[in-house]
Amino acid sequence: MTKTCIFVEGQTERIFLKYLIEQYLSPPTFTIDSVKLISNKLYTIKSSCSIDNTDHYFLIFDVSNDSKVLSAIIERSQKMVLYQGYTFILGIRDLYPNKKHDKTKVLNYIKQTLHNNGLSSTTRVILAIMEIEAWFLADYSFFRRIDDCLQVDYISQNLGIDISTSNPEDYNHPSKVIDQVLTLIGSSYKKKEKDVYRICHRLDYAKLCLDQDLHSRVPSLDYLIRCLNEALDINNR
């Protein structure tokens, strides 16, 4: 059995990751639990009854605003691997509020920090460029699944953005792009729980997980899937 803890920045990442894993590993031989850190106390969001007879166990650890992903990893992951049987640790965070030109520096600092703390072999941190919503925009077809009028041409005519050719990693605020598009149908995207569910429920996870062309255009998404494969020990099977 593999046992993976995924540290995420907040609610959006937690919801997206749960959908992604469920779709990627279907049919189910896995268990997903979620916990949230509030005022330095852990609260269970959803707990599975048992992790017996499962091939893959995931704990999605939402550090919320109380901490930062890398800090939480440094603080907890070594004990999780040594004493709680975790086989792999993932961390997912946005590059924002850092600037795009800081990307290489940020990645190097993360790598160096993991190395200094003896975590290089079991831990990977994935940086969404600039926000996790860039991965939603990698499958822009969710817009028309929300409302049929939100076709590529309609969006282009009204907002001057061609979501079919733009690279979602080029947007400074992908979440704002989603908000702008949804404004066209009198709706919005404010990162609220219902906003995130509405999108995550309509994403094409087969495309996000398996489309190699898409992965070459969106390297951060490609790295997420590669890290997930590494956690699942897929390449060694």
Binding site: K68, L70, I74, R93, N98, V106, T113
Partner: peptide
């Protein structure tokens, strides 16, 4: 930049 907390000065 690495996304660490100030208290990682300790840890």
């Amino acid at each position: 930049l690495a996304g660490l907390n100030n208290f990682d000065l300790f840890t």
